[in-house]
Structure formats: structure tokens, C-alpha cells
Design a protein around this nucleic acid. Structure first.
Lengths: 150, 150
DNA sequence: CTAGGTGCAAATCATTTGCCGGGGC
DNA sequence: GCCCCGGCAAATGATTTGCACCTAG
């Protein structure tokens, strides 16, 4: 689960003021802000910060495991002709998506229903990993962090 | 799980030729094509189709439950200050994300490891539902399909 | 005739990048 | 000096939308 391990990132980052403030603001709230919301929050303390800086730092902070990105694992929508619920397997290197060889279970939804007041209508489970094909390449040469989705 | 049930969509759609071809092409492959890939596939049979039409029809087809969208449930990335793995609860109406009151399990990953040759490094589980607040509104007036993410 | 459909181009939205000056080590 | 950094604006990429025409019922 720790990105650092497989990213082979050799860079050393400083904890700059902007970076620190961004991190503090994210930790301060118990919501899951969008990049733009983070920008707005941070700007109250650092009025001259730019949105680009926020994005750059969110990227770095999540690479370092200090925060976590939710949502778009890769930026493109994909479609699936099979409508019955099933799980997916996504490769962090090539971004490909395959069906996971495991059947969905109602148990998960039931567990949530007991504990929350949401009207649950479904769930999405996605496994993140490295596909055999990319796994080979990975052993030969370490890819740069930028090549990797999420 | 069937979108039609809660979307309250009153529109009547025709199964036009373009729509039909798009659906056929998606069903023909066992991959999970992006919108652009669908466009390319369909264009072999309907050279004059536009990307806009593809998007419009993917939207309609998934609203009708004939295909399924994977990935970006809503299009914006969100961040999370809590780095230990946990699950999320997303409201289809307002798009808000909360932490799910259920602890992650290694079982899921282990199940996959036994059955696939992927190097699994994590998993994401997201419950889709209607938050109590939006649930109230929903009862008062049925929202239009466009208001609903995914 | 009315509503849904389409192609096309322009617009929008989130995110990324290039440039360039500045500061830490 | 080298490299990371941040502000800014411009670029990019995916998706959406406005417009004008078309066609089925």
C-alpha cells in the first residue's frame, strides 16, 4: 500500500510552507475536499498561492503517503457492456481495466446498511495492482513517478 | 442497483442506429473501452458519427442500465487526510464523500491474489447511495436524470 | 407538428505544464 | 551551483453544450 515502495522515487522534497499549510488544512476538515476546495481553504492563509501549486503539492503529498487521493484512479471514464455487478482490476502502470475473478457479495452492502443512514444502492470495488505484463517491464527498468496513474 | 428505478426518468428513447451500433461494439469486446476507444470502434461502421454523439449515447445507455460506467463516479478528484486505508460512502445526488463505518479487510485482496497473476497493492471500495439529507429531498420531488452523477 | 437525434464546432471544466525568478543547502 | 519551488498564464485533454437541420411517429 505504500506508494514510496514501488514508485522508486529518488527525489527529496522539502516541507515548504505552502506544502505544510495545504497539509494542515486538509487535516483540519473531516470532509474530503476537491482540489479547488483545498485551494480556497489554503488561500485564506496564503492569498497568493496558485491553483497549480495546490495540484503539484497534492500530487507530492499523496506520493509520499501523507494524504490519499479518492476518485478518478485514471482520468478517463470507461464503459462496460456487462451490466451485472462485478469488480475490477486496474493496473497502475498501463491503466488497463479487467474484470476481477471474484464474485460480488451482498455482505458488504449489508454491513454498511446496519451502520449508516444512507440508502445504499450499490458498491464499487476495484483492486489496484500491477498487471503481469507491466510487472515484467518494472523489473527491467524503474519507471518514473509521472508515468503512473493515481 | 437498477438506475431506472430511482432515476424517475420519464423520457422515451428510441433505439436509433447509432445507439445500436455503439451498444453492439461495446458488447463485442471484452475490454473496458474509454469513450474515445468506443468512438474509434464505432467509426469503422459509421464514419460520420461524432464524438459528442458517442458521449451522449453512453450517458443514455448507462442511464438505462444497458451498459455500466466505470471509474470517475464524479469527475473531480478528492483528497483525504487520513492515510490508513478505509472505505467511502458517496451520495449520487450531492456527490459528497464520507468515510464508511466499516473496517477494511485483507480478505478481499487475498481472494484476488489466489486467482490472478496481478501484483495486488491495494483496493478501493466505495458504496454508492443516497445520503439522508438528499433522501429527504428525493421524496418531495423527483430529480431529473441530469442532476445525478454516474 | 413535436420531440428526440445527430453532426459539427465551440465552450467548459479539471488538471497539467512551461517559463522564470528565488531560495535552501 | 544545482535543484527544488512557487506564481502565473497558457496548454491540454476529456467531456459537455449550443446550434441548425433532420426524421420518426
Amino acid at each position: 500500500m505504500n506508494s514510496e515502495d514501488f514508485l522508486g522515487s529518488k527525489q527529496k522534497y522539502r516541507m515548504t510552507n505552502q506544502r505544510q499549510v495545504i497539509l494542515e488544512e486538509i487535516r483540519k476538515v473531516n470532509t474530503h475536499p476537491t482540489a479547488d476546495e483545498v485551494y480556497k481553504m489554503v488561500r485564506k492563509r496564503l492569498p497568493r498561492i496558485s491553483l497549480g501549486t495546490v495540484y503539484r503539492n497534492l500530487e507530492i503529498l499523496s506520493t509520499r503517503g501523507l494524504i490519499q487521493k479518492i476518485g478518478p484512479v485514471s482520468s478517463q471514464m470507461r464503459v462496460d457492456g456487462i451490466t451485472k455487478n462485478h469488480y475490477h482490476l486496474r493496473c497502475i502502470y498501463c491503466g488497463s481495466v479487467k474484470d476481477a475473478p471474484i464474485d460480488p457479495t451482498e455482505n458488504l452492502e449489508n454491513a454498511i446498511r446496519e451502520r449508516s443512514d444512507y440508502n445504499i444502492i450499490g458498491h464499487k470495488l476495484e483492486f489496484i495492482g500491477i498487471c503481469p505484463n507491466c510487472g515484467k517491464k518494472e523489473n527491467l527498468s524503474h519507471k518514473k513517478a509521472e508515468d503512473i496513474g493515481n
